[in-house]
């Protein structure tokens, strides 16, 4: 038997070595992540213009934010609109993943094809879509014209700009497909064999076996999607900068403008914390409401 004292010395030494090895990350986390997060909470109660020290104004930034009917609510609404993308992206990526999961010859080629758009950096694909959606010369409108379907000015139209962003994002749905595909490969074969014996058709098998089996992955992707949607920024920053007429002024873009263009860092910090609260709330709601729809192997239900 090892003596307790020796044991604790070894443990402590291991512990120190462990911390020693992760210290580069730990120090980076404390200085570059944790401290700014805490500081931004403090700044959100301050009038802070970056160039001069912050001074305390209490809840002013928050009251101003909630009473701003011209920017805060529209930017939140614009962001909410983008949630339409989630179910579409989900259906599309699960659907394509199911197709790509068939055991056919040359499937590797199609899998690569579907994933390819996700390899293109966001900035490059955004610029590419700027051209595709160009009302004058764009391929999208040219195709619609050929099919005698009415065209629109997409990113230049206050009504169609947000749907245009949804289309743009759906193009890169391949990232999700790969994750679903991996999940599909993990579905136990014996379940399908049992279903075959019971005479179940392909629809029945998909609905009763495949989807429940990959539901944790769907759930995980949905949560990530919610968080990403609240932070929607890059595409609009590059392509529309909030326009036309604020129709693509998303919450994160408005936050950026306040922080870095108007030097209202206190106000922007308050915005960030409100966004954090909203995101956390939305995630909790989704967790509470859909947890029973998610099936975990070995779990109780």
């Amino acid at each position: 038997m090892i003596r307790p004292t020796k044991n604790s010395v070894t443990t402590r030494r291991d512990l120190l070595a462990g911390y020693g090895f992760i210290s580069p990350w730990l120090i980076g986390f404390l200085i570059l992540t944790l401290y700014p997060i805490c500081a931004s909470l403090y700044y959100s109660f301050c009038d802070y213009r970056v160039l001069s020290p912050p001074h305390w104004v209490g809840l002013r930034n928050y009251t101003e934010l909630f009473t701003d009917k011209d920017y805060f609510l529209p930017s939140l609404w614009n962001t909410m609109f983008m949630f339409l993308e989630l179910p579409i992206a989900l259906a599309l990526s699960v659907g394509i993943a199911l197709l790509l999961n068939q055991k056919l010859k040359g499937m590797v080629f199609f899998r690569t094809l579907c994933y390819l758009p996700s390899v293109v950096p966001t900035v490059a694909s955004a610029i590419l879509w700027l051209w595709l959606l160009n009302p004058e010369y764009g391929l999208v409108n040219a195709t619609l014209k050929m099919l005698h379907i009415p065209t629109t000015s997409w990113l230049q139209s206050p009504i169609w700009a947000k749907p245009a962003f949804i289309i743009l994002d759906l193009w890169a749905v391949g990232g999700g497909i790969v994750i679903y595909l991996a999940a599909l490969q993990g579905v136990p074969q014996h379940l399908y064999e049992a279903a075959d014996l019971d005479g179940a058709g392909p629809w029945r098998k998909t609905w009763n076996i495949t989807l429940p089996a990959i539901s944790p992955v769907i759930f995980f992707n949905a949560i990530l999607g919610i968080i990403a949607t609240f932070q929607y920024f890059t595409q609009t920053f590059l392509l529309t900068n909030g326009g036309p007429a604020n129709s693509t002024l998303f919450y994160a873009l408005f936050l950026y403008q306040n922080a870095f263009q108007y030097f209202r860092m206190g106000y922007a910090s308050a915005m960030a914390w409100v966004l954090f609260a909203i995101t956390a709330l939305a995630t909790v709601i989704v967790f509470k409401s859909s947890a029973r729809l998610v099936y975990y192997e070995g779990g109780d239900n």
Partner: peptide, 11 residues
């Protein structure tokens, strides 16, 4: 009008 002028300018 705004939308037409905007659409034309995007080219």
């Amino acid at each position: 009008g705004y939308e037409k002028v905007n659409a034309f300018s995007s080219g």
